[in-house]
Design a protein around this nucleic acid. Structure first.
Length: 269
DNA sequence: ACAGTAACCTGTTTGC
DNA sequence: TGCAAACAGGTTACTG
């Protein structure tokens, strides 16, 4: 899926179209996503959107009587379209407003729609999540405490949502390059100073990617259908075999925690 | 508690 | 050219 910058780009894009608007009806064409989709038409008809927020990679669409929690999985996208736009394959869910439509498209169906009657942050799927990477709760001292005694590769630690949310394969890969840390290094064998550097690079790369509207990926388009512009600025992700932009050494990849992990064997230790 | 792996599902790319 | 294998942004659940 979209990682945090793509989710935040989506949230910012759809929010102004939804705020204060009443839902006329909802259509569920495919209810088998990651978990069964709730009966949205019954839950949402006539209800007004009060806020559109984000926690981790979940988008929270708040109403007076509860919150619709949206996760885009690996291949999901949310777009605001004119009412009556033709339905494509994998257009699973529509929320219909007076003259527009919020549409969930998700070929792989790893996405999810959940309903929370009370505080969505207490929903079982959100309750145990770690801090937001761009908050003050995530810093070098926090990362040092999280890494203490852990033999797990640092890349896997960064991608563990109980440690910190929103850091997926692309941005974990990029932050580790920028911090000069080998993705497979055991977490406990990295100095506090280097972990501090890493925490800062996570913030930097995510902040910059959000400014640029996310990374261009095969299936990702923002709510307006425009691709992001971060892809051309990636240092190592997706660049296996190509020269390192810093030293010229060929970028390598290896599997870490079942995910392809690109790194520069000269710049990262 | 921790670390590693399989699983969910479909589309696209790669390799023979 | 054709077909099958490998691979893709994420997260949960199971194993030892």
């Amino acid at each position: 899926m979209p990682e945090l910058p793509e989710v935040e780009t989506t949230r910012r894009g759809i929010a102004p179209h939804l705020l204060g608007q009443a839902i006329r009806s909802a259509v569920v064409r495919q209810s088998q996503l990651r978990w069964p989709v709730p009966e949205l038409d019954r839950l949402l008809s006539g209800r007004v959107v009060k806020a559109v927020e984000r926690r981790a990679k979940y988008i929270l669409i708040r109403f007076a009587h509860g919150t619709l929690i949206v996760h885009l999985g690996m291949s999901g996208s949310l777009r605001v379209l004119p009412a009556g736009s033709p339905v494509r394959k994998h257009d699973h869910v529509d929320l219909l407003f007076a003259d527009s439509c919020l549409r969930l498209h998700d070929p792989r169906r790893f996405g999810a729609l959940l309903w929370a009657e009370s505080d969505p942050l207490n929903h079982p799927r959100l309750r145990h999540l770690g801090p937001e990477p761009l908050s003050d709760d995530f810093d070098g001292a926090y990362l040092q405490a999280a890494a203490h005694g852990r033999r797990l590769p640092i890349k896997s630690l960064l991608m563990d949502g109980k440690v910190v949310v929103g850091v997926g394969n692309i941005y974990a890969t990029e932050a580790l390059f920028r911090a000069g840390i080998h993705p497979q290094r055991a977490s406990q064998r990295i100095s506090g100073q280097r972990l501090g550097h890493l925490a800062n690079e996570v913030k930097t790369v995510l902040t910059y990617a959000i400014e640029r509207g996310g990374t261009t990926l095969r299936d990702f388009v923002s709510e307006s259908g425009q691709p992001g512009y971060f892809a051309q600025e990636l240092f190592v992700y997706g660049r296996a075999g190509q020269p390192c932009k810093r030293c010229g050494t060929a970028i390598r990849t290896r599997q870490i925690g079942q995910r392809a992990s690109a790194y520069c064997p000269n710049c990262q230790h």
